[in-house]
């Protein structure tokens, strides 16, 4: 079950990254879908699988798009562990709380990748508006997905049916 959760969420995140960029939707193409997948895996509350899942998902991102293979794997493994430990201790009730945590995680991810690039490849660190925009959009997308996931669609549909019958 955990493996299925990992595979589906990681492949969906990679697919979403490519689909949003190919469709030329600027706002959605800035969302860190892979971080959302890692957070989804971590929400299961198993730090070990969240760490490994985060590392593999991050490595996939590195291989496809990053110059330093392992930077995102490092960041996302760490974030997977932290988010899983957090989800054991705190219940993030509500889309706003999820959005806030994801935005903060996205910023931390960017900081870690930039710091590793600076240390190992001497790449200039550029954390600016782009990173904050990505954090905000990742938070918003994650919050919206959480809301859609938790929304009682079936009850709502039944309620509407009952209203029609009356």
């Amino acid at each position: 079950m955990k493996l299925a959760r990992f595979l589906v969420s990681t492949l969906a995140a990679i697919g979403a990254t490519v689909a949003c960029a190919s469709a030329g939707i600027p706002l959605l193409s800035r969302v860190d879908w892979i971080l959302i997948a890692v957070a989804y895996q971590a929400a299961g509350g198993a730090p070990t699988s969240a760490t490994i899942g985060g590392a593999i998902a991050g490595l996939a991102e590195d291989v496809l798009l990053q110059p330093l293979k392992g930077a995102n794997a490092f960041a996302k493994a760490l974030l997977g562990y932290v988010l899983a430990m957090l989800s054991l201790r705190i219940v993030f009730a509500g889309a706003l709380a999820v959005a806030g945590v994801l935005a903060a995680a996205s910023l931390v991810n960017d900081l870690i990748v930039a710091a590793l690039g600076r240390i190992l490849l001497a790449t200039p660190v550029r954390i600016g508006a782009e990173s904050f925009a990505r954090a905000a959009l990742t938070g918003a997308a994650g919050g919206a997905l959480y809301w859609a996931w938790r929304f009682p669609w079936r009850e709502e549909w039944r309620r509407r049916q009952r209203r029609k019958l009356r």
Binding site: T17, A21, S29, L65, Q66, V113, P124, E130
Partner: peptide, 16 residues
């Protein structure tokens, strides 16, 4: 050819 994805993280701008 289509540019399928662009990564904008820090100073990196890479694509597929």
């Amino acid at each position: 050819a289509p540019l399928l994805a662009i990564e904008r993280r820090g100073g990196y701008r890479r694509g597929l």
